[in-house]
Amino acid sequence: MEERLEIRLSGSGGQGLILAGIILAEAAILDGKNAVQSQSYGPEARGGASRAEVVISDEEIDYPKVTKPQVLLALTNEALNKFKDNLASDGIIIIDSSINKPDTPYKVIQLPIIETARDRIGKSMVANIVAVGVITALTKVVSREAVEKAVLNRVPKGTEELNKKALYAGFELGEQLS
């Protein structure tokens, strides 16, 4: 891992991206790394623009904000258009397959994140956990064991198996590319 990895998770309110950011940060801490997580969402709790940002580092984090993320996850067109031009030079953009691939100099990975949650897992609301699995598989910024533990610590009681299934589906999607 680089000394510092910046991740921006973006979409619309209600997609659970803030929880996804918290899970990635907790997984990093479980792995013995340093992590900072921040969030922002529009005036509408559901449907408005939303983003969560995570900084993960092996070193001390001296600046807690994401400035040039190496990873951008976009689950809506609006989120993609808003954030696609502000990445590190080696940045990657992970988009849902429902979004048209942008014209950009960055590497774009298009995966059926929402469709996997809806059709394979049976609940589109776990797309955030599928996305966490994808990011884990592609970046290896946190271990699978730590991210699974963080998911199980953070999801509502009674949904652990559903979310574990979603996480593993995300691992599979990401592994197809790595």
Rank of each mutant, 00 (worst) to 15 (best):
V151Q: 00
V141E: 12
K157C: 06
T139C: 10
K157V: 13
V155W: 03
E160N: 11
V141P: 00
L162W: 05
K164L: 15
V142L: 10
V147M: 08
R154M: 15
E160K: 14
V151D: 00
A150W: 14
V155Y: 02
E148M: 11
N153W: 13
E145S: 15
S143R: 00
R154I: 03
R154Q: 14
V151W: 04
L152M: 14
E161H: 10
V134S: 06
N163F: 08
V134H: 02
V151H: 00
E160I: 05
S143W: 05
A137R: 05
E161L: 15
V141M: 08
A137T: 06
V151Y: 03
E145F: 06
P156C: 11
E145M: 01
L138R: 02
V142K: 03
E145W: 07
L152A: 14
V134E: 10
E148Q: 12
E161G: 02
T136I: 06
E148K: 14
N163P: 02
V147H: 13
L138E: 03
T159P: 02
A146I: 10
A146Y: 06
L138D: 07
E160D: 13
V147L: 08
T159M: 15
V134F: 02
V155D: 03
T136G: 04
S143C: 05
S143I: 00
E160M: 07
L152I: 15
K164W: 09
N163C: 12
V132E: 00
R144C: 04
E145Y: 11
T136M: 07
T159H: 08
V134Y: 09
K157M: 05
I135H: 00
G133H: 14
V147A: 12
E160C: 13
R144H: 15
K165W: 09
N153A: 13
K140Y: 01
V141I: 15
A150S: 15
V134M: 04
T159N: 07
E145A: 14
S143K: 01
K149P: 06
V142T: 12
K149L: 10
K140S: 09
T136Y: 00
L138T: 00
V132A: 02
T139V: 04
A146V: 06
R144N: 13
T136K: 05
R154D: 09
V147R: 06
E161A: 06
S143P: 01
T136Q: 04
A137V: 11
V134R: 04
A137C: 03
V155H: 06
R144I: 11
G133F: 06
K157F: 14
E160G: 12
V147N: 07
G158T: 03
N153K: 12
V132H: 07
E145V: 12
R144L: 11
S143T: 15
T159C: 11
A150E: 10
T136S: 09
L162M: 13
A137Q: 12
E148S: 10
V142M: 07
E145G: 00
A137F: 02
E160V: 15
V151K: 02
V151A: 05
E148A: 09
L152Q: 11
T136D: 12
T139W: 04
A150F: 14
V134C: 00
V155S: 08
V151T: 02
G158Y: 09
A146E: 05
L152D: 05
L152V: 15
A146P: 08
T159Y: 15
K149F: 15
L138S: 00
G133V: 10
